[in-house]
């Protein structure tokens, strides 16, 4: 599943810390149309995972596409995925290219 972009890759982040620990910028109707990771905080789940990188553009979160979503909506989707108790991980479909 997911977008058929040859440069995309699926990264599973375990909820190994109380926070996800990423900062994102971008969203529909901004210069950066899809959310891009600008910071990864040491000690957060994303940092512990070791595969998410600054500069990754997030295409999907648990299979939900972020294209066309404005910044706050995209941030809400990621935050909800982290809060969801039924899953102890989040799947991110990311690409390094805009």
């Amino acid at each position: 599943p997911g977008l058929l972009e040859p440069t995309s890759c699926l990264i599973r982040v375990s909820k190994s810390a109380p926070t996800l620990g990423i900062a994102i910028e971008g969203g529909a109707n901004t210069r950066q149309p899809l959310p891009r990771i600008v910071t990864i905080q040491r000690g957060g789940s994303a940092h512990n995972c070791g595969k998410l990188k600054v500069g990754h553009v997030i295409l999907e979160v648990n299979g939900t596409g972020l294209r066309g979503k404005e910044h706050r909506e995209a941030a809400r989707i990621i935050a909800e995925a982290f809060k969801l108790k039924e899953k102890d991980y989040i799947d991110f479909l990311v690409t390094e290219f805009n």
Partner: peptide
């Protein structure tokens, strides 16, 4: 100028 240059920068959210 390209149209996208007129789009505003995004805010940044820590998650």
């Amino acid at each position: 100028r390209e149209k996208r240059l007129t789009l505003p920068p995004s805010e940044i959210t820590l998650l």
